[in-house]
Design a protein around this nucleic acid. Structure first.
Lengths: 140, 140
DNA sequence: TTAATTGCAAATCCTTTGCAGATTC
DNA sequence: GAATCTGCAAAGGATTTGCAATTAA
């Protein structure tokens, strides 16, 4: 049986090294986007944690392969989160940072009609919804 | 008669200094988002161009006041563009960088229904459409 | 006059890069 | 064995900040 991480690396055409597996496992373990710095710090708590450069390189490669998406963190950092390679949108909790993927794409028709009105040809679109998740809106 | 720039500064509760006016005029002159660096370089061609720090400070203040929006430029820089303080979306040309505002908000119902399905309470959303503007899709 | 603003340059801080040694296929 | 990958530390580059001089109200 092949691990999830190894499979993703194969998709990205990257060799499944111990360091990269750790990065991906770390990413997968969080339900919210993680910055390279944070991930490196976390992985460094154990032994054999990958170097910061490797974390950056791996995250970048994953994003480029479409297997991770980038988010803008508060102070100009970039945060990453694994996601399906196919197009989708996100629900993001502003309190706890949780990210839920929305597979459907109902914005598509809206996007093309709005674009057509102004002579645009749509190539892609991005739509994210920010709010409070069930837990945060009830508990807090 | 009060200039457009002075009026915006008033809205942001900033004193209408010569430097800030220059920054805003420079922003207003471009139909695409501009980075602080680019704006500073452009304004420095003339005399009395504001310092880089002032450009950064002004752009940041405008964004905070909701009078400008930030975009992520290619190499991790932040680009700014003036916009209406009220909520809206953007059509962005991937070729020439032009940005057209979409005042309507048809995503709103989509957003709240999708969010409700997962127990989320919507606080805001962001939706941008990328493509080619009329000129770029025909001419190129 | 008083508080806000500017400019400069130094300081921060995220991210990238060069390169020798280690590792995968 | 050849091509990749890693780690380290140095380099790069955007943005922020301290502080004395300047300017707006």
């Amino acid at each position: 049986m092949r691990s999830e991480a190894a499979s993703m690396l194969a998709q990205a055409e990257l060799k499944p090294t111990r360091q990269r597996m750790a990065v991906i496992d770390g990413l997968a373990a969080s339900e919210r986007p993680v910055t390279a710095q944070a991930l490196h710090a976390q992985l460094s708590r154990g032994e054999h944690g990958p170097g910061l450069a490797t974390v950056y390189r791996t995250l970048q490669a994953m994003a480029q392969a479409g297997l991770a998406r980038t988010f803008v963190a508060r102070e100009g950092e970039q945060a990453y989160k694994l996601c399906e390679p196919k197009h989708h949108h996100h629900l993001i909790c502003e309190r706890c940072g949780a990210v839920v993927e929305i597979p459907s794409c109902e914005v598509e028709s809206w996007a093309s009609s709005v674009a057509a009105k102004r002579g645009f040809v749509v190539r892609s679109h991005q739509a994210d919804i920010y709010g409070l998740c069930a837990r945060c809106s009830s508990g807090g």
